[in-house]
Amino acid sequence: MDAQWLAMPILQQLNSGVLVLSTDYHICFYNQFIERRLGVPLAEVRHKSVFDVFTDLPEAWLKRKLDSVVALNAPVFSSWEQRPYVLKLPHLRPISNVSDYMIQNCSMLPLLHPHTGETFVCLLIEDATDVSLYQQELQRNMQALQQANRMDGLTQVFNRSYWEQLLNAEILRARRYHQPLSLILFDLDKFKQLNDIYGHQGGDYVLVELSAFIQSLLRESDLLGRYGGEEFGIILPNTGLQGASEVAKRICRQVAAHPLHYQQQDIRATISLGVAELNPHRQQDVHDLVQCADLALYLSKREGRNRSTSYRDELRHYLQKITESAH
């Protein structure tokens, strides 16, 4: 069989765009794939500059590519990941697709005329719209997964493991840039009692509402996490003990003044807080800093709850004394 006749029908029915340009960027040919999507018959634009027909083309960019194809007699490529499309064309699924234009991979290939030896450049356009959509979806899912991995399922604040990672990173940062860093630990007062009165759903409700309320009181840079059960932590970057102590007192006051409505009842919940600042002269790690804040929190509880205590080294001696006298 003489296969010569095959070339044109296949070229026309190819499910890829074929656009042939002269070395001075004039249109010599495009196949049906492009003709139908562009809606302009080839006869109308043949010998016109490609930049006059596809007015959105990035001229400097494309010229650089085409020139290199001609000069080096070697192909050049453009991936959708770097440039979503070369030719602004519609895609064939305007309803089920979210992108406005056909996302494309483009190969630019050198062509030599067999008789005249003249060089042309063939732009081979492949539709990558579906691939790009899958990619986007994958990225969205990865992000959602990552988010889920960092959040506490109930309260939607950071979970303990991620919050500890953040604290670790903030400690390193504070040390590197010689900035202050403080930590607040707080505990919902008499949580067991709340659970007994309102049931576990009532208790959960209080945890969720209080987390959201306290989150709303914080600056964007403050990092709230659920440390476990009814215990939470707030990382306050670039904040000294005094500033953090003021924040803690304010939160304590506002929580106490903020009734929670649960099944036609008002629940009045209070919290106890402990505040500690990273000591720049000691090599404190996450564990040390949490321990200091925890000690201050313990004293807040001991002194009658619904209050905030700031950690000072003297507290350790005080604590020692009261535990000794208890024995």
Binding site: S68, A74, V76, F77, R83
Partner: peptide, 18 residues
Amino acid sequence: DAEMLTDISSILTTTFLN
């Protein structure tokens, strides 16, 4: 950068391999 890198790489590779 990604496009620049792939372009340069493509030029070096294809001129040599051609």
